[in-house]
């Protein structure tokens, strides 16, 4: 079995974000990057499947992004990926989900993967499109937002998370692509020996030019901080004073405290 896991490196979401010079993306210069949270579940699920199948499947990890992306790739390899493909693209953020997915599909086309795992969305862009587009371009069956996954004899049974806590159960035949939701599993910490061994694993470098030359279908016109909604009161300062003020406000504005 051949497995592909698509991952993205994103900034730590607790960072402070500001628009970049031409206001088309955020300024990356002072941010710490890590693997997209959703993708950690994707990697973990792929590795669990490999373990379930006695180590037979080969897991390829793919990521598109600049040089720094190698760190996220190596993490995925340390978690249990076998080899990686790094599509080195410094302007990745100017590409829309269609272009990103087209690059992935154009790489994957020749590789005949049986199963592809992606995150359900990226934490920075949040389009929730890339995985599904890849599946459509490759003609794979596809299900999104997995909180449950099991595999048996060529069939994947997925549990999709729906609104209100309900789950939808469905079966797909391979080849398939699934997108992973938070809570699908418990992503492992990569062990130190595995981090060091990942150094020896192959990371093939590709350039966007070798893949798809699709034009964008959507473009970012501008990026900016959301307008602050007025009205909300911000209480700063010392705990004791904050406690007193909040108590006063609640007594005045709500009926819950007598």
């Amino acid at each position: 079995m051949k497995i592909l896991v698509c991952i993205k490196q994103v900034p730590d979401m607790e960072s402070r974000f500001r628009p970049n010079g031409d206001k088309t993306w955020y300024d990356e210069s002072d941010l710490a990057f890590r693997m997209n949270e959703y993708d950690e579940y994707a990697v973990e699920q792929a590795v669990q499947l490999k373990e379930q199948l006695g180590g037979e499947p080969e897991i390829t990890v793919l990521s598109i992004g600049p040089e720094r992306t190698v760190e996220a790739i190596k993490k995925a390899l340390a978690m249990g990926g076998d080899r990686a493909v790094h599509i080195r693209d410094d302007r990745y953020y100017q590409k829309d989900p269609w272009q990103i997915a087209s690059m992935i599909a154009s790489y994957a086309k020749g590789e005949s993967f049986d199963l592809i795992f992606t995150g359900m969305q990226s934490q920075d862009r949040g389009s929730a499109q890339v995985g599904v587009i890849v599946a459509e371009l490759l003609g794979l069956s596809c299900a999104t937002t997995l909180v449950g996954f099991s595999y048996d004899g060529g069939t994947v049974t997925v549990k999709r998370e729906l609104e209100g806590g309900i789950k939808g159960v469905a079966k797909l035949k391979l080849p398939a692509l699934v997108t992973c939701q938070l809570g699908l599993n418990t992503p492992r910490y990569p062990t130190l020996p595995n981090i060091m061994k990942a150094k020896k694993k192959e990371i093939a470098a590709l350039t966007p030019a070798e893949l798809s030359g699709e034009a964008e279908l959507t473009a970012t016109a501008a990026i900016y901080p959301p307008a602050k909604k007025g009205g909300g009161l911000v209480l700063e300062g010392e705990i004791g004073a904050q406690v007193d003020r909040l108590m006063g406000i609640l007594k005045e504005k709500t009926a819950v405290l007598r």
Binding site: M13, F17, Y224, P226
Partner: peptide, 8 residues
């Protein structure tokens, strides 16, 4: 974008 810290 970015957990609603930015808008696009």
């Amino acid at each position: 974008a970015c957990n609603a810290k930015l808008r696009r």
